[in-house]
Amino acid sequence: MIRSRRTFLYSLPCAFALAACGGGDSKAAGNPANTPAAAPTEIRISAIPDFNKGKLEETVGTVVAFLAKATGLKVVYEPSSDYSAAVNGLVANKLDLVWYGGLTTVDAQDAAGKDAELLACRDIDLKFKTYFIANQKAIADGKIKPITDLADLKAMAKTLKFTFGDKKSTSGHLMPRHFLVAAGINPDQDFAGGAAYRASGGHASTMQAVANGEVDLGALNFSYYDKAKPEEKAAAPIVFTTPEYVDYCWVGHQRLGAATLGKIKDAFLKLDPANADDKKVLDAWGAGKFVAADPKAWDSIRQVKNALPKGFLE
């Protein structure tokens, strides 16, 4: 209640300012800030920076044109500086529609409440996986060998340099940490020098660090790995695959209005792999197809997040 009253209060001066302009600035007048009732003129979309900037722009580019066509609105891509910025941007009326990971989807639900609407996710997001990949040389030297049970890693961990991905990545940090802890491994103490993280560049950065031997072992998004160049894969083979979990999701803000949100959702669900144009979008996103997102599915991520020992934050 407080939030909506604040919204109203803040929209007042804007409304006066617009009235004073006398509608001369038609672009601003058509899209008064923070007024959910008004039909939007543009959609600001973003995505968590799970790859480096170049790769992300390439992927998001395919969806910009497709969404503009589906909604008849202008679609603008706003890069997000980090995972958390993508969440804050949605609440702060900087972004309207964001491609989140599992953990950030939960954050967006918590931060924006009912205003955050989970729209669609890829087929693969309901059965997502993390790969543990190791440096080829470390495998050849026998420092590490492919394992079937993470608990087997404990014996080798002392000599291994390990990196997670971004701290807020579901597949690069949250879930691999969860599975390691479940296997009796404390990543902050058991690996040589504790676990490292990637400051930026997401999964591409993890792949690079493992491939060039800066670390022996890394945890990353299986979908990124599957699409990587063969020579990179050869330099960093998979040693372990985690069980499946829920991950990425398109989340929209209610300020877009139910009609627009509905159009966006339909457009994603209607993407048809048999249609050549649709196939391009699906391929860019690594999706077979998009399916409707059931918010309850992400509760499992919330549980993992809450139950995880938080020593790494202290």
């Binding site: 601003a28 899209n31 009326n93």
Partner: peptide
């Protein structure tokens, strides 16, 4: 300018 105007300052 336009960005500042539309931001939700209550949240910030």
């Amino acid at each position: 300018g336009s960005e500042l105007q539309r931001l939700e300052w209550g949240f910030i």
